[in-house]
Every structure is written in C-alpha cells, then in structure tokens.
Amino acid sequence: MASSSKPKSIYDVFLNFRGTDLCNNFLGHLYKALNQNGIYTFIDREEMRKGDQISAALMKAIEQSCIAIIIFSEDYASSHWCLEEATKIMECKEQNDLTVLPVFYKVDPREVRGGKERYGKALAKHESKFGKDSEKVKRWKKALFNAGNLSWWHLNDGPSNN
C-alpha cells in the first residue's frame, strides 16, 4: 500500500548502474544530457563524499529522488550493491510512488526478469555465497522480476528480440 507522505525530494533522478559496464559510454552521455537540461541527478561517483557510509548514503539518495533510472547491463546482477539499490528502488516505488524507468542496455528484459543466462549465473553465485534460501537473494530476484515488468527502453547494438 502506498504511503500518503512522500519524503522530501532532493534529486530529480537517481541513476542505478553497474559502473564497469557503462561509465565511459552510455552512462556518461545520459548523465551529461540530464545535467545540461537542468535535471539534478544523483550518480554515486559524483555525489558520494569521501568518508560517506556507502549503503546509508545511497539508500537515502534513492529515498530523496523523484525518479530512478535502473540501467540493466550485462554484468549488472553480479554486483550485490546494484541489487540492493534495485531492491530499495522497487520498495520506494511501492511505498512512496517513486517513478522507476528501467533501461535494458545490451541485455534482454526477459533475461533480467526471468533470471536467465548471465543474470541466472550471477544469482546462482549469490545463492552459493548467501545460501539457496537467502531472504536477501529472494528480495533481489523479486526486485529484478518487478523492474523487468515495467515499461522500459531496450538499447542494443543489434535487433531487439521483444
């Protein structure tokens, strides 16, 4: 059930991404375009200060954003930080009406929501680390499934399989 009191927004957009996949290409162009159009965007490499507690600062930034853009890429699911952020984003969508815009960058949306191929392998590694019945991994799978079912953009070098 959605909460009637939405936290005060500081950021227009929160960008959730796997840095090793995107930092020097798509993400850089997106961040620049948002800033050039006066859209105040949280990106962890720009907004995090030395000494900030990473998880608390990121979770607070998600809560203080109007829109979250989740950029699913090939290696996204291998990062437990990305999965934690995605889970928080989807929780804020339900509780605070956060607008969530998924972008599938060189990855099929069915792979994300169904835990197939690279996403399946990454989630299996997390299960081996945290346990097959881990609540944490179950929350991550649910967040991926729910985010994968939202209206989205699919960016690929080749033809789309949708």
Rank of each mutant, 00 (worst) to 15 (best):
Q53S: 14
G38C: 02
L15N: 01
N162H: 13
L22R: 10
P7W: 02
I62K: 00
I54K: 13
I67G: 08
S9W: 05
W140F: 02
L155N: 07
V137E: 05
N162M: 11
F145T: 11
A122H: 07
G158L: 10
I54V: 15
K32G: 01
S73T: 03
S128C: 12
E135F: 01
L22Q: 04
A147S: 07
S9T: 05
A56H: 13
K142Q: 14
T99C: 11
K32Y: 12
S4R: 15
G115A: 11
S4F: 10
K106S: 15
N162R: 13
K32V: 05
N149L: 09
G28L: 05
A61W: 05
N149C: 13
F26M: 10
H80S: 15
A68K: 03
I89F: 04
E84Y: 00
L22K: 03
I62S: 02
I70G: 02
S79T: 13
W81E: 01
G114Y: 11
H29M: 02
D108K: 09
E84Q: 15
I39N: 12
G28W: 10
M48F: 05
T41W: 02
F72E: 03
K121I: 08
K116L: 14
S78H: 07
T87F: 07
A143H: 01
G120Y: 05
M48H: 09
D108G: 12
D133M: 08
G158M: 14
K6M: 09
S128M: 10
E111M: 06
G28Y: 06
R113L: 08
K138E: 03
G114M: 06
D21P: 09
S9C: 11
C66Y: 06
L150I: 07
V103P: 00
N35S: 15
I70S: 09
S160Q: 12
I39A: 02
K93G: 08
M1D: 14
S128R: 13
K125A: 12
G51K: 01
Y76D: 08
L144W: 08
I70Q: 00
S4T: 14
K6H: 05
I62L: 03
W153F: 12
E85D: 06
H126F: 06
D133T: 10
A143L: 00
I71E: 00
M48C: 06
K129M: 07
E84M: 12
K88I: 08
S73Q: 03
G38H: 04
L101N: 02
K142N: 13
A68L: 00
V13Y: 09
E127I: 09
I89T: 04
H29W: 08
A33D: 08
H29T: 10
F42I: 02
A33H: 07
A77S: 15
N25C: 04
E74N: 12
E84N: 15
G19H: 00
G38A: 02
H126V: 00
